[in-house]
Write a protein that binds this DNA or RNA. Structure first.
Lengths: 255, 255
DNA sequence: CGCCTGTTTGATCTACCTCAACTGCTGTGG
DNA sequence: CCACAGCAGTTGAGGTAGATCAAACAGGCG
């Protein structure tokens, strides 16, 4: 599994041009000169699973991109109820430029390596370099679309549909990442605990577990341990997810 | 009630500098010269309640701002289940630059006046004028935060909390709009039918109705007809919404 | 006046939650 | 090498918030 090793605790310098997320992250439209500017002010930080990267309401002095690992954005109600409002993968951006405080927590769910900038330096660059701001707008619009899709899941889907939808999202990511066809046989890992899945889907642990075993019994997926999944009937899983698969198939074909 | 009259069906030309949303919309950072450019290419279109402004998946040739009225962004599952994923008020922006198709419908829920631009012309301007793109990024980040708040509501709140939260949002808007204090006695209208409220909150009509009468019986609000609300106990309503009111109170005081 | 549409209220049903017990894995220490 | 915590996940039994089905009600309009 290509789950990047965590490279110790001290910042390691890597050239931006060699960066694994060079063509996906906020810097992807940057010309070499701009990249050099970013190179000069960036720094890497590693986070162990469970560690908080950003805390709700606390002034954040830095922001940047996920280089490796998975980060959960979560909101917590005063009585402890929790909702994971977004999962961030390598290339995704964390932090809100031009705002002191974040309205959510960002927590590492796997070992995470971040590429960070000091807020003020990054904001300067953002206003000077339109490519950077343009890319950030594009990424933010994508996140907004994804958030709205998730609102449909949370507001209108059944437990079975929620779990199936979640697996479909992971399967798509895996297919893109491994250059594999999104089809039966594709294997991937669930990067979250049952607890975290439940908080992402607006369900309880038990319901998630039950739905997963049901999907297994229905021969849509194969489960090996708690986190290893292999697709047995992608078409069926897609149907179980409640989304009409029309536009989704075009994705498969064009990939 | 300042519910702007709809000015007939044919485009009416108004100077941008006199525009009621001049200081809130995507154009708010524009200098006079840039405003003149927008002025030259903008046009107004009116929509009757229920009319579709943007349809899912259909190529949209124009985008722009809500000048008056309320617009709902909604997504529909293949079997007809519906989720309203966002409400847009005057000043809010509709349409996704640099993308042909929208992944949702935008529907007028009241009489709506839009200030529109042809996509290509607006995109040109957006890449030429950083102020415009900067403002759009800011607005998109705000919408993303709001979407994530709504995800908490949809995933984790009870029916009572959902309805109370919805009323709090409307009350805040009314307070800002009417320069009034966000406190007991404040009156406002619900711009949505029970049906639309239910689709926004991930509930059914009946549950929305029951929760509203319960909030009335609990003396948190006064209800006059189906749409006129007056706050009787804002503090209590806030508590019923499930949000800790701490940061909210600072809003009240600073307003 | 009677129809139509939107809303409220009532009675029942069910999907999911809650509480509780059990399983299996992993690490630790005798 | 085994015993046994300790924890994540599964499975079961029963309860409940909100959905569903159904009927009454209210306001606008021909």
């Amino acid at each position: 599994m290509p789950d990047e090793n965590v490279t110790g605790l001290r910042p390691v310098h890597q050239r931006c041009s060699d960066c694994p997320i060079r063509h996906r992250a906020v810097c992807s439209y940057c010309a070499p000169a701009q990249l050099a500017e970013l190179d000069a002010i960036k720094f890497y930080v590693d986070y162990a699973p469970g560690r908080e990267i950003v805390g709700t309401g606390e002034p954040t002095k830095s922001l940047g991109s996920v280089v490796s690992g998975v980060v959960a954005l979560q909101k917590i109600l005063s009585d402890g109820r929790r909702q994971i409002v977004g999962l961030l993968f390598p290339g995704d951006f964390i932090g809100r430029p031009f705002e002191q405080r974040a309205p959510y927590d960002a927590v590492a769910v796997t070992p995470v390596k971040m590429c960070l900038f000091r807020r003020s330096q990054f904001e300067d660059l953002l206003t000077r370099e339109p490519e950077l701001e343009h890319r950030l707008l594009e990424m933010t619009l994508n996140e907004l679309d994804a958030a709205r899709d998730w609102m449909v899941l949370l507001g209108r889907k059944t437990a079975r549909e929620k779990v199936a939808s979640f697996l479909v999202v992971l399967a798509r990511r895996a297919a893109v990442l491994e250059q594999a066809r999104l089809a039966d046989g594709l294997a991937f890992q669930i990067p979250l605990s049952r607890d975290a899945i439940a908080e992402h889907l607006g369900l309880t642990i038990e319901t998630v577990s039950r739905q997963l075993t049901q999907l297994r019994k229905d021969a849509l997926i194969h489960l090996d341990g708690a986190r290893d999944v292999r697709l047995r009937d992608y078409r069926g899983l897609l149907e179980a997810s409640g989304d009409d698969g029309d536009w989704d198939d075009t994705l498969v074909d064009s990939a």
